[in-house]
Amino acid sequence: MDFQYIQLEIAEQTATIWLNRPEVHNAFNPVLIEELQSCFDALNQNNQVRVVILAGRGKSFSAGADLNWMKAQGEAELAENEADALKLAQMLNALATLKQPTIARVHGAALGGGMGLASACDMCIASSEAKFATSEVRLGLAPSTISPYVIRAIGARQASRYFLTAERISAKHARDIGLVHEVTEPEQLDQKIQDIIDALLLGGAAAQTASKQLIAMVATEQVNAELLQSTAKHIAHLRQGAEAKDGLNAFLNKQSPSWVKTTSEQ
């Protein structure tokens, strides 16, 4: 696939998507949003890719929206403005609902929409030099399209502070409030991500997709009879699947399941 503002690399069952507008700190514009949407859609259909990494070229992960684009949309007709914003919202949802586990590799600034991308990924691994912020209020805006994912990551209480103050959040504090899973020194960032990829590849692909769906299904629900029934159906369906039968038989026979590649197969 040919892109103008992103680069896609696929190796050893892992796809790495590089945001590639380093001269503007990987800021969003309509082309970048469209390219990410197309890339996510293609990867969602690719059964050979087991893990998706989102990363940024240059000094920053992403500084969020291109301000010239945002200004132009503010001057457009309301219907055009809404349609444009919906494309960003749909792209973030495509990332959040990818069937593969997703990891944000954050090495520099992740501001506004950049923090939204990091939040929409299943996991966020950050360099100790990374900085985060929902900076929209300082531009007279609100973090509207990224809000479902940021609030899912840090909760409404923390959002009540950072959506309103737009304070910069250090990598360490981002870990403390739940946005970041691991903080490493810059030179150790890729090794930490590789460690997580290695752990992910030991799990079944269908089981991981089902686990992502399970989290979405139960995260905001009360424990009641309906939820108990839903979770029972969820595991019953998985137990009848070929992947579970393979995995359980392999474990009981002290073997590796078919999805785990041996050294000779890699």
Rank of each mutant, 00 (worst) to 15 (best):
Y149P: 03
Q90S: 10
L43I: 14
E80G: 06
L92M: 06
Q266N: 11
F28I: 02
R161E: 11
R21K: 15
L88G: 01
L248C: 08
L141D: 10
R175Y: 03
P257G: 07
E80D: 08
A199E: 11
P148G: 12
Q48P: 05
K87G: 07
A27V: 02
M70V: 15
I215S: 12
N93C: 02
C39Y: 00
A216V: 06
Q229V: 05
K245E: 11
V52Y: 00
V51N: 02
A174D: 00
S264R: 09
A96Q: 03
G64E: 03
Q240I: 07
I169E: 05
S144G: 13
V150Q: 02
G116M: 05
A85C: 14
I197L: 04
L200H: 03
T97Q: 14
P186T: 08
A206Y: 10
H25A: 11
A55V: 02
A89F: 06
Q240V: 06
R21T: 13
K99W: 03
N81I: 06
A109I: 04
H237Y: 08
L200P: 01
F163I: 15
A104V: 04
R239A: 14
E82C: 12
A206T: 14
L200D: 02
G140T: 07
N224Q: 06
H181N: 12
E75P: 02
A83K: 12
A142V: 14
Q229Y: 04
G114L: 03
A216R: 15
A166M: 11
D41V: 12
L92W: 00
V137C: 07
I6F: 02
Q37D: 14
G113P: 01
A120W: 01
A104G: 04
R152K: 15
L67G: 13
T263D: 10
A126W: 01
Q48K: 15
K212D: 01
I197Y: 01
E167R: 11
P186E: 06
M123V: 10
A76H: 09
E243L: 12
Q229T: 09
L179Q: 05
K192I: 06
A83N: 12
E9C: 10
H25N: 09
L86R: 14
C124A: 11
A236N: 08
Q7Y: 09
E9N: 15
A76S: 15
A89T: 05
L8R: 12
G56H: 04
A76K: 13
S256H: 09
A110V: 05
A76L: 09
A242L: 13
I33G: 00
L117H: 02
T97Y: 10
S147Y: 02
R57S: 13
